[in-house]
Design a protein around this nucleic acid. Structure first.
Lengths: 345, 345
DNA sequence: ATTAGCACTCAATATGGCAGAGTGCTAACA
DNA sequence: TGTTAGCACTCTGCCATATTGAGTGCTAAT
């Protein structure tokens, strides 16, 4: 780090101020508002240096300075303190997660977005688990009547059901049960991802005498399992963006909200790997559409497996310390709950 | 109708013009653009009358006129012609519905929003079917292992699954099957709505010897069935609103998009009954938030049962004839598809 | 090395004048 | 009596100009 103590103090003060006011910060403001023990003229000189080094920018000659992406980066990495959550906030998180933990996982995920967006005042996006990663616990063939069968696949955190399968001739329940048992023997314990054509044909070959009925059931079952599930995206608090003056210009707001309509883009944004909280600032993002936004992302897990991820998106002038603190707590609590509820050794 | 022929022509011309340009329309514009065979001065007099009668409004003294809600109402009820869909549009609708009709119903519903919003350029909201209205086709108890059971209820258009039920002592598969059969006998053919505590206790009383296990399974099954399902709301094309100049003012856009975040409000808007397409203009709406919007709604059906509804929302200056035409075609096609796919006599 | 002071720059805001669109009214006309 | 041409009037939108205030960079003094 090529920043001396004093420059760091000034940079930190400036960013703290800017995060609150959204106005370019001048040397005099810093001198008055923060007790750094130096005059505005000195601060002025230091600020000119900080600008040369790329940490600050000046919207125009006679304005104060605002942080650059690089400035925010230093701030996030080294300068910002860590925030404590209030008891109230902690309660809110706990209650919200507890109150829905019994339901199916997508309902939980959806509820999460609401709490997070209420707590942070930013837009929250969550990617629900892709069923592909879930593990088969049981397969059940259900006879609707003697010509219609439906397959239900229970996995550790989802239930996949095939569409109704029409058979060419009636099947009796013993036969169906036998087939059911074979399927269970062969497929239980695999993830949906792992079930591929090779395994399917193994199943088909391992038994004789049922090929006809197998041929009717298997393709539809396979298709249902492989129905490309891209991981549902849930959004909450899109209109929170209007709270922030940088989006008071209609075209800015339009750009932001149009971006949120592109689910594929969001999916990519959320497809981060890794465990910890990741902050992506302005142009660090791969997409032009969000080059003036920051995103704080993390993934959530069942056991040790990452099953989905979520992100909080707002202006680069984001209240990073708060958002990070909330997300950190939230994720760890959520992971615990999900794991204790859905984890199967 | 207290409007003579000439007034009607003028009103129609004015609204047609305003729908396209979004600018107050002056007498001279109408005289030039539409061949009504009368001079601008005459039109001016008629327009003053129309304003007195409440069909037009004047934003300020020296501006042209714009339609009032009452004006739009007459237009929608009597004046606007009916629009023909292009072959291209028809194809688009057919393909979109066909391409997803195999999946589960919510996926279809979701896809619908996309097509409609692409075709109309407005915001589309859809309320998915409430599972409450669906009819039990089959109940299956699935033994995950000898201490865990799960109940799956297949209905005509959804699959409801209970959470995993932990039993206090192991159960053998014969016993489970017997219970399963009893449940099927008693509940098959009922809608989820119709299954209430009375019926449940009838089931419980009608058999002896299984009470212990029944007592463990029934409450959880019942809870799953009754899990309040409010009918998921799907939105598409929220940012379409930015295409329309009346939302160029940031606070207008904010108001609109904040309104879309209120799912309960949308649910109420969509909870219309009745069969046909309904148009709700400006202040005719019950909510202040949308007093400058119009909504075109309709419900969709499986067989003769209304299962959900959808709405297209935009500025009162809406391209009513087009929207109506598209929605009409869309709904009738959708009804046919849903019915042929999900209808069970 | 720090600071006070000053000239300079630039955005934001207010002010006034002008052009254009549209009206209402009156008087003439068929 | 209904229609029309003409004209004075009104109001918005736009442009140019002046003013203000915040903030800088530079210089000279400490």
């Amino acid at each position: 780090m090529d920043l001396d103590e004093r420059k760091r103090h000034i940079l930190k003060a400036l960013i703290n101020d800017y995060i609150v006011t959204a106005e370019p910060v001048g040397s005099r403001t810093i001198a008055k508002r923060y007790r750094l023990g130096i005059s505005s003229a000195t601060i002025r000189n230091e600020m000119a240096d900080l600008e040369d080094m790329g940490y600050l920018e000046q919207p125009h000659t006679s304005a104060g300075r605002i942080p650059s992406d690089k400035g925010y980066r230093v701030y996030v990495d080294c300068l910002m303190g860590s925030e404590k959550l209030s008891n109230q906030e902690i309660e809110l998180i706990k209650n919200s997660i507890c109150s829905v933990i019994e339901g199916e996982i997508n309902r939980i995920i959806k509820e999460m977005t609401k709490v997070l967006s209420a707590l942070t005042n930013y837009t929250v996006m969550v990617m629900a688990p892709q069923t592909m990663n879930s593990m088969v616990k049981h397969i059940q063939l259900i006879a609707i009547d003697d010509l219609h069968v439906m397959a239900v696949v229970v996995t550790n955190f989802s239930v996949v059901n095939s569409s109704s399968i029409t058979l060419s001739r009636p099947i009796d329940s013993d036969k169906l049960m036998t087939i059911n048992n074979i399927l269970n023997d062969k497929l239980k314990g695999l993830t949906l991802e792992e079930i591929n054509l090779k395994i399917i044909s193994e199943v088909q070959n391992s038994v004789t005498g049922y090929s006809e009925i197998f041929n009717e059931i298997i393709p539809i079952l396979y298709k249902s399992l492989k129905k490309r599930d891209k991981g549902e995206i849930y959004l909450e608090g899109s209109s929170n963006i209007f709270n922030y003056p940088e989006y008071n210009a209609i075209d800015k707001a339009k750009q932001f909200l149009t971006m949120l309509d592109k689910k594929d883009l969001l999916r990519n944004l959320l497809s981060c790997d890794g465990d910890s909280i990741k902050i992506s600032i302005g142009h660090e993002n791969q997409y032009d559409e969000i080059s003036d936004c920051s995103i704080v992302t993390s993934s959530y897990k069942i056991g040790d497996d990452v099953v989905g991820s979520l992100g909080i998106i707002g202006p680069t002038r984001m209240y990073y310390s708060k958002v990070t603190a909330i997300l950190e707590y939230f994720i760890s609590y959520l992971n615990d709950m999900l794991t204790s509820y859905y984890y199967d050794k």
